[in-house]
Design a protein around this nucleic acid. Structure first.
Length: 511
RNA sequence: GCUCCGAUAGUGUAGCACGGCCAAUCAUGCAGGACUCUCACUCCUGCGACUGGGGUUCGAAUCCCCAUCGGAGCACCA
């Protein structure tokens, strides 16, 4: 039989089963927002965000917060924040960060239904460890790390693997009692020492750490601490987690934890993984490196505008709704991505543009003396399209202008001072001009540049931005805008942070 | 070395489970234009992608194999 083309095939189908053709032409509705979750009939969704509070929450954390909480909102369930703070040494928790995480979650519209701190629940982990030892699924290993690794890589069991549960319980009790030094003993979960994936062979579940925990209520209560795979496995079951979304670096975790779930006869939550997100604008930040840089005064603090912390983003006037939208539209993909802040800024601009009052702000100010103009008061609108009232600016015989605007001028140049009047430059140093007229028609006719300016009675403003600091003069009315996002015309959006007698401090939001 | 994952415009993303609606969605970005007493906003137009090669099929972004590239795990970190 001769080969058929798709067209011929359609003709055949048309004669055989025209209803199938109809079906082909039905448009599939594209899914908006997050993909559906695999939820069982009548199941209450329980999801969590589980950070180690060893540093402040960052923009990266918002993905976990927003996506997990969004699913919970969508399906109606429980959102838990769980602090995986079981390493008092290497990734030592930072006391302030606990509150920061909860606070930032609330700010992001992800008020947790429950807050769990792992270091409060060490006895729970001990109980489960004991049961596993009794069942013969865990053993205390006294091998040196290097030695064990060699054996493991060669798919060989270490001598401690076959010790009886009774014997192991004794070792375990001595571990808990503090009889062993750090690095001399570790509790391992028995998996399959010959597993083809070396990552899954007998992994560590508890180790000895004699450094006290930073939380005063815990301190030196324990010297045996669970590792993430163990702690997470137990907690996810204890808390009734139904779905987990986490980094794909934890993919093997699921397989490792699967052994524990099998031993206990538990059902593993449904998991999804996502890749790493990097922002173009931010380099690599390590918490420890940052802490040092802050102590050294390189950054003003954890909310320095140059940092990717949520605290900094908030202070800059980014709205939580913008972050939510940004994170939700990014979705949950396994690819590692590197994304630009531009998209986040675009979302935020949509929210902020209609409500931000407009003001003049002149950076790198230069005085311009004007002759021939009468003192006056003008009342430009606070917003070009929204009816938000107006501001009042008094002008006498001089104003401030931006250096970068007037540098290009020469004697004879005609410019429009926005919302004021037109002038002609008579001298560039000192900078002088003479009044021409205040007819907007002539601006268009002569294609004059329109520049903004600031009155002599303006306030000193310091703008802190990721690209550095701008100092200048703004209309004094900005002092009424504390905590609001305003737009400095031809400069960008800023959040008015503090208002002092000598100076207003603003945080740069975005263009 | 062993083991796992992934790859759609500059950047993200939809489509892939179940192959024809896909000469491929949306957003952002960039370019041009309109509007505007802001370089903002709004509006219009344009730019731009299925990693490569085989296979299966009448038909492949979608299924299979190989290659390439990228990421991750093999911690007494999370």
């Amino acid at each position: 039989m001769a080969r058929e083309t798709p067209e011929q095939w359609q003709v055949h189908l048309q004669s055989l089963a025209p209803e199938l053709i109809e079906e082909l032409n039905v448009k599939k509705e594209p899914d908006k927002g997050l993909k559906a979750l695999d939820v069982e009939e009548g199941q209450q969704v329980v999801m969590r965000f589980a950070p180690n509070p060893n540093g402040p929450p960052t923009l990266g954390s918002t993905r976990g917060i927003v996506v997990n909480s969004e699913y919970v909102k969508k399906y109606g369930g429980k959102f838990i924040i769980r602090f995986d703070d079981t390493d008092p040494q290497t990734k030592r928790p930072m006391l302030e960060a606990y509150d920061w995480y909860v606070d930032d979650c609330k700010w992001l519209g992800a008020d947790p239904d429950e807050v769990v701190i792992a270091s409060d629940r060490i006895p729970v982990y001990y109980d489960h460890a004991r049961k596993l030892i009794e069942m013969g699924h865990a053993y205390v290993c006294f091998c040196d790390g290097e030695v064990f690794k060699k054996l493991k890589d060669a798919k060989q069991a270490c001598p401690h693997r076959d010790v009886s549960p009774e014997e192991n319980l004794k070792h375990w009790d001595r571990m808990l009692a503090g009889d062993y030094e750090e690095k001399t003993a570790v509790l391992r979960i028995k998996t399959d020492i010959t597993h083809k994936d070396p990552a899954l062979r007998d992994y560590g579940a508890f180790r000895i750490v004699k450094t006290p925990h930073p939380r005063p209520e815990i301190g030196d209560t324990y010297c045996v601490w669970p590792l993430l795979d163990f702690e997470g496995a137990i907690e996810d079951h204890e808390l009734g987690m139904t779905h987990i979304i986490r980094g794909k670096d934890l993919m093997d975790s699921e397989k490792r934890q699967g052994y524990i779930y099998n031993y206990f006869g538990w059902q593993y939550p449904k998991t999804t993984h996502w890749g790493r997100v990097k922002m173009h604008e931010f380099g690599k930040f390590s918490t420890s490196g940052l802490r040092k840089a802050i102590e050294d005064g390189e950054y003003s603090g954890w909310d320095d505008t140059r940092l990717p912390t949520i605290r900094a983003i908030r202070r800059r006037g980014i709205r939580p709704q913008a972050i939510r939208k940004f994170m939700i539209e990014m979705g949950v993909g396994e690819t590692d991505i590197s994304i630009s802040m531009d998209s986040l800024y675009a979302e935020n601009r949509k929210l902020v543009d209609p409500i931000a009052n407009r003001y003049f702000f002149v950076w790198d100010p230069v005085e311009l003396e004007i002759t021939g103009a009468k003192p006056c008061m003008i009342t430009p609108a606070l917003h070009p399209t929204e009816d938000r009232g107006c501001r009042e600016i008094e002008v006498n015989d001089r104003v401030y202008t931006c250096r970068e605007d007037v540098e290009k001028l020469e004697a004879g140049s005609k410019i429009r001072l926005k919302d004021l009047y037109n002038v002609e430059i008579t001298s560039t140093s000192p900078l002088r001009a003479k009044y021409l007229d205040d007819c907007i028609g002539s601006v268009k006719k002569e294609k004059m540049r329109i520049i903004h300016w600031a009155p002599m009675d303006g306030v000193t403003v310091k703008v802190l931005s990721p690209d550095g600091e701008f100092k200048g003069i703004a209309e004094k009315q900005v002092t009424t805008e504390q905590d609001n996002v305003v737009q400095f015309e031809r400069f960008g959006f800023c959040r008015i942070d503090t208002v002092d007698v000598e100076e207003v401090v603003a945080y740069y939001t975005h263009k």
